[in-house]
């Protein structure tokens, strides 16, 4: 009980902004890169991404390489949504939602928001797997009956 009270107190000492930042730190990362792919900055909250520093992300990440055209033509208000990507963020294999938009203060830079949704999508994948297997089973059974 005492521990619980201490824990609660430590949370209550945070402002809501701090609390939000704390939660987001464990689920999201922002990476900024030039339109030619050169990584400029990262908040490193999910992964250190050290191997990408001062390099073109296009050389390391085929998904981004295949989107170069989109980045060079991205509109001021446009947000490119690429949800549910099975991806390895450095050593972290998982499911991520990606969004790309122009930097609000510098349109030469692209802001890549990486949201780790692994827990949610793994749950969804298990359900989808079960559903698909049931559909397959049903189809094969129907085919067997009609043959």
């Amino acid at each position: 009980m005492r521990c619980f009270t201490t824990w609660r107190k430590s949370w209550f000492m945070m402002t809501l902004q701090q609390l939000k930042a704390h939660v987001l730190d464990h689920s999201a990362q922002v990476i900024v890169f030039q339109k030619d792919g050169l990584m400029v900055d990262s908040c490193h909250t999910l992964s250190g991404v050290k191997s990408w520093e001062n390099k073109s992300l296009y050389d390391s990440i085929s998904l981004l390489r295949s989107m170069q055209f989109a980045f060079s033509h991205i509109g001021n208000e446009e947000v490119i949504d690429i949800p549910c990507v099975d991806f390895v963020l450095e050593q972290r294999q998982g499911y991520y939602d990606f969004t790309f938009s122009l930097h609000p203060e510098n349109p030469d830079l692209v802001v890549w928001l990486v949201k780790d949704q692994t827990r949610v999508y793994r749950y969804y994948a298990a359900i989808q797997q079960e559903r698909n297997l049931l559909r397959l089973e049903k189809e094969y059974k129907e085919r067997g009956q009609s043959a």
Binding site: S62, L63, S66, V85, D86, Y95, A125, Q129, N132, L136
Partner: peptide, 27 residues
């Protein structure tokens, strides 16, 4: 075994067509 794909996964492979190297980025 069959494993359902959800969302998207990207792979790549390079193929040689004569003198030309073509990288296929497969979604």
């Amino acid at each position: 075994e069959y494993l359902t794909t959800i969302g998207l996964r990207v792979d790549q492979k390079t193929v040689q067509l004569g003198d030309l190297t073509v990288e296929l980025i497969i979604w």
